[in-house]
């Protein structure tokens, strides 16, 4: 076995099938999308090369920048909510009663499909017989909000289920990481008189920084390219008030039939995601791994 793995050719051969598949369904389409973005194309007629015309249009496209702002807001909220998830995991990972059951409950949204979650929340947000508004009416609120129709609140109304959807995922990651923190360190700290807060903040969190960085990248990139719930629940409406970059791209491609411009948008989206990932890696880079 060792002898075989030392042969570079064999290694290359083994990599080949996966590499071919990846190239075929990911890398080549990305390059093609980049090329389509340089063309005026409605998906049917022959393409005409227009150079950077689409990107010029993109820079001046207010609707795109408002959707980009919404995506950034979602990314910001996702990152902030990571703190909450970390707090929940810290509690779960300490020895409290029922931690096991709670952990499973938090994971339930992860098991539901996006469309099911969307339908569920559509019912909850229903303006006249939804759960929230009925509750508010019972409390005596007269003008209950129109959650998904009011352009001022629709974006935040939709963020809530998105954050809820992924809570279990991050909690699970943090929980697993925290369980990996050696018991001895914690015990030693307790003997030295450290409080629970100090143990969490000074010992556990620093020990899982690498995991924190990964989840930060996941949350950022995941939010920037987010699509499902928004598409099902509002379709980006009313009038673009809940549009994000991915739903905007879909709308241009499949509703306005402007595939050239949509390709430019999606390529731009890819660039943004790459830059953001690189930025996070660069900003959070530490020279040495913390060890106790």
């Amino acid at each position: 076995m060792n002898k075989m793995m030392s042969n570079k050719w064999i290694i290359a051969l083994y990599m080949l099938p996966a590499l071919l598949l990846l190239a075929l369904i990911i890398y080549i389409p990305i390059v093609l999308t980049g090329y389509y973005g340089l063309n005026d194309w409605n998906g049917i007629k022959a393409m005409t090369f227009v150079g950077l015309e689409n990107y010029k249009e993109l820079i001046g496209d207010k609707a795109f920048w408002s959707s980009a702002l919404h995506s950034l807001l979602l990314a910001l909220f996702s990152c902030l909510s990571l703190i909450l998830y970390l707090a929940v995991s810290l509690v779960l990972a300490s020895k409290i009663k029922g931690a096991n059951t709670l952990r499973k409950i938090y994971l339930i949204p992860m098991l539901l499909s996006s469309v099911a979650i969307a339908q569920l929340w559509l019912k909850i947000y229903h303006p006249s017989n939804g759960l929230i508004n009925i509750f508010l009416e019972k409390l005596g609120v007269v003008n209950t909000p129109e959650w998904l129709a009011n352009t001022d609140i629709v974006l935040f109304a939709i963020f809530l289920p998105i954050l809820w959807q992924y809570a279990g995922f991050y909690i699970l990651i943090y929980y697993a990481a925290l369980k990996g923190v050696p018991k001895e360190v914690e015990e030693a700290a307790t003997i030295d008189g450290a409080t629970a807060w100090q143990i969490a903040y000074r010992i556990k969190v620093p020990l899982i920084t690498e995991v924190l960085k990964v989840t930060l990248v996941l949350a950022m990139v995941g939010s920037l390219k987010y699509f499902d719930l928004i598409y099902v629940m509002t379709g980006g409406g009313p009038n673009g008030a809940s549009e994000v970059m991915a739903s905007y791209m879909y709308r241009i491609a499949f509703k306005s039939f402007d595939f050239g411009y949509a390709s430019a948008v999606s390529f731009f989206l890819l660039l943004i995601c790459l830059v953001v990932t690189w930025l996070i890696r660069a900003l959070t880079a530490s020279k040495e791994q913390i060890q106790y």
Partner: peptide
């Protein structure tokens, strides 16, 4: 129009007519 119509799909909106609301 019924409340929150801009956030309701046609099927959700027409339910009010079918429920005689």
């Amino acid at each position: 129009f019924n409340k929150g119509f801009n956030g309701l799909s046609n099927d959700e909106g027409k339910a009010d007519f079918y429920n005689e609301a």
